[in-house]
Design a protein around this nucleic acid. Structure first.
Lengths: 208, 208
DNA sequence: TTTTTTTATCACCATTTGGTGATATATACT
DNA sequence: AGTATATATCACCAAATGGTGATAAAAAAA
């Protein structure tokens, strides 16, 4: 006969695992991934580090499990109520502007994006795969048909704009400097970027 | 009377300082800035770590001095032989394409760019200031007069394109994933990006 | 040559870090 | 109630890391 799993108030494996995962998130948001050390994670979780080895196998696996548990790109996906009779022009704009704002506000996502530029962690690669896959739906179903032979140009432009958005948002978070004279932290600076994004989408769709 | 500075073959302060600075560069290129530890730097330099404290005051100051010694953005500056009767259209294109290639090849610069997104080191801030200042010449003298009331739109677009270039180049170096379906590591992928850059500059100048 | 000073090494320490075996105890089962 | 076991803690270790005082040795000055 199976023994019932322990779920007391003091001893509770599932709750402890949760505590560790939460601790990873907290440290990631506040100190960044370079601060993700066993001792510190255990301290923040309020539990013994030995449990990290027992429950996850080690810090790396714990971190991987954390990344998997957070569906960072799930919110990014399509706004279904937008019409696409314009070949995705409105959708493209909305998506870029939304991401520009979303990444700016989500410090944890910023850390994750940066992490993906620094390390080759398998769980981070999977994140990138997910992002690619969800984006592919937009391309294959909407923009590719609309742009035909120029579909790759549209993709290249989106690649530049999206990665530019990432960079500028992160730059603004860690830096007080301007970029090309723009202060991406301020309302005015961000407005300029937003108008530029909108402008460029218009131009790509005009030139089809 | 001043004592002559020591410059033997075995003991030579200036050469030793050089060795430390070179060691920093080597580690930065090969292992990244997270590997810049006193013991490792000393080992690579082939000297005792005590000298790092004696000559520079510590690892941080040594690293700062290294960053200052490398004029990372000096090469980026203008190509003076390009005419600017087109309001800087050709210059803008050439600059973007050149940077796209330059950053892709220069792994050390990639690390520095990333570093600037992670830490708030004063020497890195100075680097950013330098970059801004050298770019400002282009804006103030060429694009601002040409674009008039739309000068900030041009700057915002350049900010997006340049930061997109940085991101994609670094992404390509550390990642095997595609981005918006493009493989920025391959000749074809990079060609698409280059054409997109060129296309967008044209559009901005058309719409003036 | 002898002395002085600069340059470099060495031995050593404290702290941080990752990791584990032995042990205690809360919970579940009988 | 008593017993078994999953859960959690503790003490401890080895290696890595940052940092320094005492000392050796090379080069310059006498």
């Amino acid at each position: 006969m199976e023994r019932k799993i322990v779920e007391g108030v003091v001893r509770n494996k599932e709750k402890s695992k949760e505590k560790f995962l939460n601790a990873v998130g907290k440290i990631l948001r506040t100190k960044g991934f370079s601060a993700l050390k066993v001792n510190d994670i255990a301290a923040v979780a309020g539990l013994d580090k030995k449990l990290i080895y027992n429950y996850f196998g080690g810090t790396d696996q714990l971190i991987d499990e954390y990344i998997k548990s957070q569906d960072f790109w799930s919110n990014v996906k399509n706004e279904p109520d937008l019409d696409i009779n314009d070949g995705g022009q409105g959708l493209s704009k909305a998506m870029l502007l939304w991401q520009f704002d979303y990444v700016f506000k989500n410090k944890e996502l910023q850390k994750i994006i940066l992490w993906g530029l620094l390390e080759n962690r398998s769980s981070l690669k999977k994140l990138a795969d997910d992002r690619e896959e969800s984006g592919d739906a937009l391309f294959k179903n909407i923009s590719d048909p609309h742009f035909g032979e120029h579909s790759w140009r549209y993709r290249a432009i989106m690649a530049l704009l999206i990665s530019g958005i990432y960079y500028l948002d992160i730059y603004a978070s860690t830096n007080d400097n301007t970029f090309c004279g723009l202060n991406v932290k301020t309302e005015e600076g961000r407005k300029e970027i937003e108008e530029a994004l909108s402008f460029m989408i218009d131009k790509v769709y005009e030139s089809k």
